[in-house]
């Protein structure tokens, strides 16, 4: 007989929520939020044009539609983030032959750094150019953050507050979180 206990989702970040967050987008002066558990689906297809057409984005750019973010993370790869059932459904509804669809919800830690000092914080742990010219809202790239390979999306809050989404291998979650808290300490970073 199968055990019927309800399983509990856990983030790799101890300070984070014990259940998957429902929404994305914090708005403090400088805040760090653990958004692990947000649905993530990777859709890969060698036909870049096909991805652009279906997901309204291209390599290096992200498009937000309500609570769903579609990012051209790498050439031939679109990452869809948002409500888990929604993004899985979206990927399925738009799936074509030749797509490789992989759900990465459980494989990635998702951290959001928000606020006017967000770029000052990140430039202490990452060599990317965080200026508006090189990393405008909607920009998508990858880089080493505190020596962890991260996917990075500039995803400003609705009120225009600067905000960056960082995703990395889940196993690095606590380390990356701690490194960001340390980097943001001088700017009064708030967790949550």
């Amino acid at each position: 007989m199968a055990n019927t206990q309800t399983p509990v989702f856990r983030s790799p970040v101890a300070a984070g929520s014990s259940t998957a967050p429902a929404t994305m987008g914090a708005t403090s002066a400088l805040s760090l939020a653990d958004e692990t558990g947000v649905g993530i689906v990777s859709v890969r297809n060698r036909d870049e044009g096909s991805l652009i057409e279906r997901f309204a984005t291209r390599f290096g750019r992200a498009t937000r539609s309500g609570n769903t973010l579609m990012a051209g993370q790498r050439p031939g790869e679109c990452i869809i983030m948002g409500d888990r059932s929604g993004v899985v459904g979206l990927a399925a509804s738009k799936q074509l032959a030749g797509d490789a669809v992989v759900e990465l919800t459980h494989g990635r830690v998702v951290l959001r750094v928000t606020g006017a000092q967000a770029s000052s914080t990140l430039e202490k742990v990452c060599s990317l150019d965080w200026s508006d010219a090189m990393m405008p809202n909607g920009a998508v790239t990858s880089g080493s953050v505190a020596k962890v390979t991260c996917d990075v999306i500039r995803d400003d809050a609705a009120n225009g507050t600067r905000s960056y989404l960082l995703t990395a291998d889940r196993s690095f979650g606590q380390y990356l979180f701690d490194a960001l808290v340390d980097a943001g300490d001088e700017f009064g970073i708030v967790v949550g």
Binding site: R44, G98, A100, E103, T105, H106, D169, R170, S171
Partner: peptide, 12 residues
């Protein structure tokens, strides 16, 4: 070749 390789070490 029609192959997509996605690392999922920490997905599981």
């Amino acid at each position: 070749w029609d192959v997509s390789v996605t690392p999922v070490t920490t997905a599981y």
